[in-house]
């Protein structure tokens, strides 16, 4: 069992065994992260492979402090790409679809907002907004929209009613919308 620093050291030394270790230690996690988005086992497995490629390509030069969230993030991005590719038209069936649908009221339509906003500006604004949130609100928001957790699960883990979670998420979306407008991103 290797810790993060050992695995990263292997990657820095271009030791391909690092990928085997990562798959063993984080493969399930990456799969789950991807599966929640794609809703497809096959796609999620592909995303795990893509994630391994991505981590090989990105470390070095990247030096993540914690490997798990770094890998999860990579897996999510790969899954998002795959989701975008395979779901040109929205389909039901995954919690991610539902989460995405909820976010659509933050950004109502592609016609009504500026398409040329840089993604990194949006990410920076999002980060700024998230950091300003109370921790519990930030956690719940990320559980829902980063991890595509079900409202029920979120409610359970935070000892809240589902209604309370839905209400909080609605308010957070509104606040986010307001923040993005304030930042000139909407």
């Amino acid at each position: 069992m290797l810790d993060d620093s050992q695995i990263i050291a292997m990657l820095n030394q271009r030791d391909e065994r690092a990928l085997t270790v990562i798959r063993e230690q984080f493969g399930t996690m990456c799969f789950q992260a991807a599966y929640r988005i794609t809703g497809s086992r096959e796609d999620a497995e592909e995303c795990v492979n893509d994630t391994l490629m991505a981590v090989w390509d990105s470390i070095p030069p990247q030096k993540p402090d914690r490997l798990a969230p770094y890998l999860a993030s990579l897996a999510c991005r790969k899954a998002l790409d795959r989701f975008e590719h395979t779901h040109r038209q929205k389909r039901g069936g995954s919690r991610f679809t539902s989460a995405l649908d909820e976010l659509s009221d933050v950004i109502p339509s592609s016609e009504s907002v500026e398409k040329q906003i840089e993604q990194r500006e949006l990410s920076a604004a999002l980060e700024k907004w998230l950091r300003a949130l109370p921790q519990i609100h930030r956690r719940i928001f990320l559980r829902r929209y980063y991890w595509s957790e079900s409202v029920r699960t979120i409610a359970q883990e935070n000892a809240m009613s589902e209604d309370a979670v839905k209400m909080l998420l609605m308010r957070l979306r509104k606040k986010l919308q307001k923040h993005l407008r304030k930042e000139g991103l909407l």
């Binding site: 399930t28 798990a68 969230p69 770094y70 659509s104 993604q119 949006l122 883990e157």
Partner: peptide, 29 residues
């Protein structure tokens, strides 16, 4: 901008903001 762009922005967040939920964990099953 599409909702998907917002999702992408989420996945660009720095690691220190990301808390691993219990349902997605460093499990080795």
């Amino acid at each position: 901008m599409k909702p998907l762009d917002l999702m992408k922005a989420l996945y660009d967040l720095p690691e220190d903001l990301i808390e691993m939920p219990s349902g997605i964990e460093e499990d080795h099953s």
